[in-house]
C-alpha cells in the first residue's frame, strides 16, 4: 500500500511537472556488448518520453526491448521500465555534450529453448555520456556511450537429474534447486533521434 502510494505520488508529481513543460521524445537503437564476438553482443531499442524541466535539464521515462547474451551462449530478453534524466552542457548551441542516467527495473523473458528455467528481472542502471546535434527547431540526433548493468534471476523448474560422474547422468543424484543470479554489465552504444 505504501509502495503504491509512493508510486502514485511520484507519477502525479511527474505529470504535474510534465503539464508545465515542453514534451520531449527520444528513440534510440544500439548494442550492448562486452566482447568482440557475435555471442557477446546484445541489442537495445528504447523509447524515452519526458519533458524539458529547464534549459539543459530533461526528465525522461524510458521503455523498450533489450536482448542480452550472457555467460557466452545464454540469451535473455528484457522489458525495461526506467526513469532518469539528461544534462545538456550547452543547450543553446547547435551541438553539445550531454550526460544522462536511467534507473529502473527490467522484466525478464527467456527463449523457448530454456524451458527448464524461469526468469525474473531486476534493477537496471545506465549512466551514459554522448553528443547531441540539433537538426531543426525541435528535432535532434544523438549518440551515446554508456555502462549498463542489468540484474536477472533464473530459477530451475523442479528437480533435475544430475550426473554423479561428469558424463554419465542419473544414479540417484539430482539438483533439487538451482538459482542463478546474474549481473550483466555491458558497454552500451546508442544512436537516437528525438523531437
Amino acid at each position: 500500500m505504501k509502495k503504491m502510494f509512493l508510486t502514485l505520488l511520484m507519477l502525479g508529481f511527474c505529470f504535474g511537472l510534465y503539464a508545465q513543460h515542453r514534451y520531449i521524445n527520444v528513440n534510440e537503437v544500439g548494442v550492448l556488448v562486452y566482447g568482440t564476438g557475435s555471442e557477446e553482443a546484445g541489442f537495445t531499442a528504447l523509447t524515452a518520453h519526458g519533458f524539458r524541466y529547464k534549459a539543459g535539464i530533461e526528465f525522461l521515462g524510458t521503455t523498450g526491448a533489450e536482448k542480452y547474451q550472457f555467460d557466452r551462449v545464454n540469451t535473455v530478453w528484457m522489458l525495461p521500465i526506467s526513469l532518469g534524466g539528461n544534462y545538456v552542457l550547452k543547450p543553446a548551441q547547435r551541438s553539445s555534450f550531454f550526460a544522462g542516467l536511467q534507473l529502473g527495473y527490467g522484466f525478464a523473458f527467456l527463449p523457448k529453448t530454456e524451458s527448464n528455467w524461469t526468469a525474473s528481472g531486476g534493477l537496471k542502471v545506465n549512466p551514459q555520456v554522448g553528443w547531441r546535434w540539433k537538426l531543426g527547431r525541435r528535432s535532434l540526433l544523438q549518440t551515446a556511450i554508456g555502462y549498463q548493468t542489468q540484474r536477472v534471476e533464473l530459477k530451475q523448474k523442479g528437480a533435475q537429474q544430475l550426473q554423479m560422474d561428469s558424463y554419465i547422468p542419473g544414479f540417484g543424484s539430482e539438483v533439487v534447486a538451482w538459482e542463478r543470479n546474474v549481473l550483466m554489465e555491458r558497454l552500451s552504444l546508442r544512436l537516437g533521434f528525438g523531437f
Binding site: 555520456v129 554508456g146 543470479n181 549481473l183
Partner: peptide
C-alpha cells in the same frame, strides 16, 4: 577512452546457489 574502458570492465557476475541430493 570511454568506449574501451567500459568494454574491458564489462562482464557477467554470476552467483550460483544449488541444492543437490547426492550419493
Amino acid at each position: 577512452l570511454c568506449c574501451f574502458s567500459f568494454l574491458f570492465l564489462s562482464c557477467d557476475k554470476i552467483e550460483e546457489n544449488s541444492t543437490y541430493r547426492i550419493s
